[in-house]
């Protein structure tokens, strides 16, 4: 009996570990970053560390532009693909495609960035215009990053719809597509919406692939077209931390960017897991 209690205590400590980590991340980030979190940081239009100017507004806008475009592209390809896989494809086709999609989930992002840099960027430069490193390149690369996950989760929620629903609709003389549109999609919609919100969060937090193709100008500006170069929140941290002096306001500003990222992504995850999924349960 005694050892049983000790074991359960030890296991509880292990389980609390991830909570402790998240708590510590919050504390440490805030401790370093909170002094920079003021309106001139969030809405300042100039980021220029050697002039002690730390405004992330252009970076924030750039990030949102890239993320929004990428999610739209990924949705346009991913959701119909998921519908096809779960509703219209023969079993063996689905198996092959699903397994290969699952294999690609989590493919090292640096490899995707490398592809973007070596193939996509020159292609855009030669055929579309600009320097090649651009919002457009960011869209494509990031869409690629979130696509496999989106397909997998969306397909899972479509398949979770009981077969009896489909049979009931088909038995009433509905076509396959009418059944999908009127019965299957509404039942799976909360799962799909959660997948999309999670995808937005993942896109926002993604660092390497995007960093390698969006250009990261020294002094970012608010983008005016899709061929403009931009900076991402994540890439700013990654590029500048190595030359930011420890203890300088530059370092605090980078941690403040971490705080902003942390809260945006956590809010999105919260919405996806607790608001959308809970609604589904009720």
């Amino acid at each position: 009996m005694r050892t049983e209690d000790i074991i359960s205590k030890i296991l509880f400590l292990c389980a609390s570990f991830s909570a402790v980590i998240v708590f510590m991340i919050t504390v440490f980030l805030l401790q370093e970053g909170v002094r920079m979190l003021n309106p001139s940081f969030l809405f300042g239009k100039t980021w220029s560390p050697h002039r002690e100017l730390f405004g992330i507004f252009p970076t924030l806008v750039g990030t949102l532009c890239v993320v929004a475009g990428a999610v739209v592209i990924a949705t346009a390809i991913g959701i119909p693909s998921a519908i096809f896989l779960s509703e219209f494809s023969p079993f063996w086709v689905r198996n092959i495609i699903k397994s290969s999609v699952e294999l690609i989930v989590g493919i090292p992002s640096v490899v995707i960035g490398f592809f973007g840099l070596t193939v996509l960027v020159p292609f855009i430069r030669d055929n579309v215009g600009g320097r090649g490193e651009s919002i457009l390149a960011g869209w494509i690369v990031l869409a690629f990053m979130i696509l496999p996950n989106l397909i997998t989760i969306a397909e899972d929620s479509l398949r979770a719809v009981p077969r009896s629903y489909r049979e009931a609709s088909l038995a009433l003389g509905a076509t396959r597509w009418q059944t999908v549109r009127n019965v299957v999609l509404p039942s799976a919609s909360s799962g799909i919406r959660a997948a999309l919100v999670l995808g937005v969060g993942r896109a926002m937090g993604e660092t390497m692939a995007v960093l390698m193709v969006v250009g990261n100008p020294e002094t970012p500006w608010i983008p005016l077209g899709i061929l403009d170069r931009v900076r991402m929140l994540t890439s700013t941290i990654a590029i500048e931390f190595s030359y930011a002096e420890w203890g300088s306001s530059h370092q605090y500003a980078l941690f403040a960017i971490g705080v902003v990222l942390f809260f945006m992504v956590t809010a999105l995850n919260f919405i996806a897991t607790f608001v959308i999924r809970r609604k589904n349960i009720q």
């Binding site: 991830s18 998240v22 980030l29 994540t234 941290i237 931390f241 990222l261 956590t266 897991t273």
Partner: peptide, 25 residues
């Protein structure tokens, strides 16, 4: 439920933020 929520939060955490924490801590 708190433990579960934090686990989910950690799962969604951008890797660069984890890197920053590792760097500092």
């Amino acid at each position: 439920r708190t433990v579960r929520f934090f686990t989910e939060t950690l799962a969604g955490m951008p890797s660069i933020v984890i890197g920053l924490f590792g760097l500092e801590f």
